[in-house]
Design a protein around this nucleic acid. Structure first.
Lengths: 220, 220
DNA sequence: TCATTTTGAAAAGAAGGCTTTCCACTATGG
DNA sequence: CCATAGTGGAAAGCCTTCTTTTCAAAATGA
């Protein structure tokens, strides 16, 4: 049997619209990611069909499958993009804190950076805290793995703060649960905030202040 | 035009298999709820078709629509059943605490009752904390409403404890966030626990102890 | 025994999503 | 200007699911 009668895409790297084939492909991928963030973050994952995603991205359905195996893979990619950026923001904010600062400074830096990033574009919060949860078995497994990694990172920070005397030493179990409560507490606070009608929300600054106060109480 | 040519079900209350029509109907509903808890709590909501639910329940698809408008309605009913029972367990446990007890006693009673109920049957935890999240716009709205009610109930308890001097008074924003952190923290701790392989889990008692310790720290 | 109610199962039609294939059009290099 | 690579859009085939309807068999009351 003859090989594929059609030409395989990107076979010969020809420039189109002034950009090379790799850049064109990256462009389409980026547009799909943007459309995914928008659709998942506003209409929700179950209500976002591949067709709608593609037409929003200005990409043909054929090209969709060049980048993602299915809708689930796009959701995971969007999620990973948000998580990676959030962790970078967080690391940058924590890196700017001078060593030996009291716990309140660390807590405020981290919480402000994280909540700020998530709510700067509320679609991020919705995808991260709502749409990705239980979307499918594979997505849920991925989410738990990411969360476990994130928790390990926070535990390392907690260890460092204990070592520098800014945080009271606790048993392993308490440290583990402390981090889970921090993650879950921030998550629920943000979800509550975005799910509340705008005219009934308390100022975001008050939420951050309260979270910091709670962290400080637990730290002592 | 003539009325329905078919006989409407339950038109004449005739006994079948020894039980009356109302009991038969209640039976089917209960079996559907049980099958829903099982399917949603093990395979997950997106992977549970109505057909699979009905055959697991030993109920025909025709009867499914006598009780629920669609799959979403069954999920909400299963969720409500869990939430109602959990709140009853919680109220009962808190009601058994003698007035004026220190905060640690209140916290332990509530947290033990709630986590115990959810993990006594892990399918409850999965439905409550994973499957119901973002399942659809209507389900998510319902979930947030239920959570808002639950938070209000907890805030009332907090107020009572402040009034009796067991809990330090805080600003309104802090109280609000305290409750959100309690809800989110317990939720994430339970979700973490059920998502962890059995041989890697810490003893549940340690998690409860740590949660109580954290609540006490925040209370002072 | 017999007419009737109730049942589970299955069929059938409608709808929608997934994935591949096709196609007319545009941009490109020569 | 032309052959061709590459494009977005349309559509077709396939599948699954939802929801309604039908039907034969079982159970009931008289």
């Amino acid at each position: 049997m003859p090989p594929k009668p059609q030409v395989s895409p990107l076979a010969s790297g020809r420039t189109y619209r002034g950009i090379g084939p790799a850049a064109r492909d990256a462009d389409r991928r980026a547009r799909l990611l943007a459309a995914g963030l928008d659709a998942f973050g506003t209409r929700g994952y179950p209500a976002s069909s591949i067709e709608a995603l593609c037409s929003a991205a200005g990409v043909s359905t054929r090209n969709f499958y060049d980048h993602f195996a299915n809708r689930e893979a796009l959701l995971i990619a969007v999620y990973d993009e948000i998580v990676t950026a959030a962790q970078a923001e967080l690391a940058s904010a924590l890196g700017a804190v001078v060593a030996g600062s009291p716990i309140a400074v660390w807590a405020r830096a981290g919480i402000e950076a994280f909540t700020g990033f998530m709510l700067e574009d509320p679609r991020r919060a919705r995808v991260n805290f709502i749409e990705v949860v239980g979307a499918s078995q594979a997505v849920e497994r991925h989410r738990r793995a990411v969360l476990g990694q994130f928790a390990a990172l926070l535990r390392a920070t907690v260890e460092a703060l204990i070592a520098s005397g800014q945080l009271s030493a606790r048993s392993g179990a308490v440290k583990h649960v402390q981090v889970a409560v921090l993650i879950g507490g921030v998550q629920e606070s943000i979800t509550d905030w975005v799910s509340t009608a705008e005219d009934e929300r308390m100022p975001l600054g008050d939420v951050v202040d309260a979270l910091v106060e709670i962290v400080v109480l637990v730290a002592n």
